[in-house]
Design a protein around this nucleic acid. Structure first.
Length: 294
DNA sequence: CCACTAACCTGTAGGC
DNA sequence: TGCCTACAGGTTAGTG
């Protein structure tokens, strides 16, 4: 579910409900997700007010009035929702019609204007992560991340510097969060298609001898920015009101040019190619063999 | 340092 | 219907 546009959509959905809200109770239904919850996690959240909901790459950052930051990563299947809840006992909730098997974190909050809310983190595969830290520099998850693709630091020149001498295929190079932070399997295929670059092309081939980016690398920087921006706009339009949303609906309304379209005609104007699927480092890549050059 | 694989975990879709 | 395999939006430890 979550690459950068999805996480940003979640952030925008959560912010109006969480900013200014005070956390009353936190219930962990297990002791870990991909890794254990940090020591003192519950105690550090309870009683605190959320000042803002931010995002870095695919990480959500809840800034607390204590100065600490609650970090959440959604992994593959993680999502937040506000429950239509009933409580039988203080720590056991009941939600009509919901499959609560994978609800791992239940947060009760009070918002000054919206009243009492129950926020639930659900994650079937448990590839998600939660952490707590004082300063962003202290977080092993945030350290080493490359530039935000929609920020000022990201550019073709920046990518050229990172790609110089790299023989790894572009697919792997763009999935590397140290190069650009926030792309995932879908948007790597989409951005490479826009730039007419094959996922198998070696990263260093897009860097000129002078060290400057090739024309296609310039196109790629634009492609990354535009595809992410368009996806955020598509997600934001249907998920603005986050209540009851499963975190994924709406997102799928964004139309992918090549992802999961094996056998379909290439959508590039005038192109006669057919989309192909290949596997690189265990993951699917989709591309057009006609308009995406090696 | 680089490139690649396996592993983490559960659910689902498709073939037979 | 059941059984089996392949695969799924992510990341990281381990290997050569």
């Amino acid at each position: 579910m979550p690459e950068l546009p999805e996480v940003e959509t979640v952030r925008r959905g959560l912010a109006p409900y969480l900013e200014g809200a005070t956390i009353d109770t936190v219930t962990l239904n297990r002791k870990d997700l991909r890794v254990p919850f940090p020591r003192g996690f519950v105690k550090s959240l309870e009683g605190r007010t959320i000042l803002s909901v931010g995002r870095r790459a695919k990480y959500l950052l809840f800034r607390l009035d204590s100065g600490k930051t609650w970090l959440a990563h959604l992994g593959m299947t993680g999502g937040f929702r506000f429950a239509d809840f009933r409580f039988k006992e203080p720590s056991r909730y009941y939600e009509p019609g919901a499959d609560i098997k994978h609800d791992h974190v239940v947060v009760q909050l009070t918002h000054p204007a919206r009243g009492k809310l129950t926020l639930i983190y659900s994650d079937a595969r448990r590839f998600g992560v939660m952490d707590l830290f004082e300063r962003d520099e202290d977080s092993p998850y945030l350290a080493g991340l490359g530039p935000e693709p929609l920020g000022n630091q990201f550019s073709a020149e920046e990518m050229a510097a990172r790609f110089a001498g790299k023989s790894a295929p572009m697919k792997a190079a763009l999935l590397d969060q140290r190069v650009v932070a926030g792309l995932g399997n879908i948007y790597v295929s989409e951005a490479l298609h826009r730039a007419h670059i094959r996922p198998t092309t070696q990263a260093k081939k897009l860097v000129l001898r002078s060290g400057k980016p090739s024309a296609r690398l310039e196109l790629l920087a634009d492609g990354v920015r535009t595809v992410l921006t368009e996806a955020i706009e598509a997600g934001g339009s249907t998920l603005r009101d986050f209540r009851g949303a499963d975190g994924g609906s709406g997102y799928f309304q964004h139309r992918f040019a090549v992802y999961d379209r094996e056998g379909e005609p290439c959508p590039t104007p005038g192109c006669t190619g057919t989309i192909r699927r290949i596997v690189q480092s265990g993951r699917s890549s989709f591309y057009c063999p006609v308009c995406q050059k090696p």
